[in-house]
Design a protein around this nucleic acid. Sequence first.
DNA 1: CGCCAACGACACGGCACGTGTCGTGGCCTT
DNA 2: AAGGCCACGACACGTGCCGTGTCGTTGGCG
Lengths: 197, 197
Amino acid sequence: MTKPPNPQRRSQKSRDAILTAALELCGEEGYGRMTIEGIAARAGVSKKTIYRWWPSKGAVVLEALHEAADTVAPHPDTGDFAADMRTQMATVIRFLSPPSHAPLAGLVADALRDPELAEQMRERLVRPRIEAFGQRMRRAQEQGQLHPDADLDVALDLFYGPLYHRLVLHLGLPEPAYLDTLIEHVIRALDPGHGRT
Amino acid sequence: MTKPPNPQRRSQKSRDAILTAALELCGEEGYGRMTIEGIAARAGVSKKTIYRWWPSKGAVVLEALHEAADTVAPHPDTGDFAADMRTQMATVIRFLSPPSHAPLAGLVADALRDPELAEQMRERLVRPRIEAFGQRMRRAQEQGQLHPDADLDVALDLFYGPLYHRLVLHLGLPEPAYLDTLIEHVIRALDPGHGRT
DNA sequence: CGCCAACGACACGGCACGTGTCGTGGCCTT
DNA sequence: AAGGCCACGACACGTGCCGTGTCGTTGGCG
């Protein structure tokens, strides 16, 4: 149909301006109220240029987040698995809480209606972070801080499920003290030997 | 501002037609593509009549779900807590999976951008079901199937968190076998003594 | 039975979408 | 150094839905 443009000729300046403008506007007026036209205006860019490289508002925000989030929310490894999970999950909670939750929450909302966007989000944002969690978890197992038979999928569900559950049902995200309780429970759940010998 | 209409004079027929049309269209073309104008046309109703009684598409779907879901997803009590949780969660999973997930997923998506709608959803759809879960859980504690000190908030997070986590990150909802594993883990997590004395 | 408000119908302005067109300018080739 | 290609910014356009306003009609309450 429409011939795809040549990426080599792409203007890096326009690209950066668009991604920056998207994140700024997202914070200022909210994901839902932000429009492609608004992003174009803020970035000093033609609407056409946005549509040339991205199929939707969600795709722009996804790429902006992908770029911005590479440095954030790493899995620390101090040798204390529970403490490291506490640190990492607290960071995630910050990204899911006001005032900084707009881009991620908006993207999640759009992805619930756009399967294409959902796949992009899963593969580019979610999957790498699951991988990072998996690596940290395996180290904890090697160091004997977590039962060697603990299941990665179950661990992922039990650690991060409560966060998204509370986000989408608007039940309020965990306070630090409650987060500790949660982590304690999950680590116990992952120990099938449950103390007996 | 605009004087509120008199509920006594409200046409029950129009109301029912609107709610029915909303759920039907939701299933046929998806929540996102469904429009207020489409609902009005299908219901044989003026757009004005919808705007007179509901502030948004989300509010209509919320009320439709509220009405339809009163009978579904009850918490059975056969005396076997784990089995009952399996039954109930499998029902929830059906509501979160294609092809019937459109209304709920769409509502969740809209609520992420509309605080008013989010509050309505929490109070009218979510809160009553949390309450029902709490009652079933307390009976399990009385019958010794669950540790008496088990925390209701933690239990809610660990049981249902994985479902919504997987829904919004598009990781695929649990299969029956995996659901069993999950429930087993959660019940273990909720037992703080877990075997040691 | 009479009133009055909720109703269906329809038209309206507004907004953002996504596309098309055009002239410009920067980079790559030669 | 000259030429061509093509992404760019600008702008205009048709479309679809929004949310509101208006106007008879109708059905239920007092």
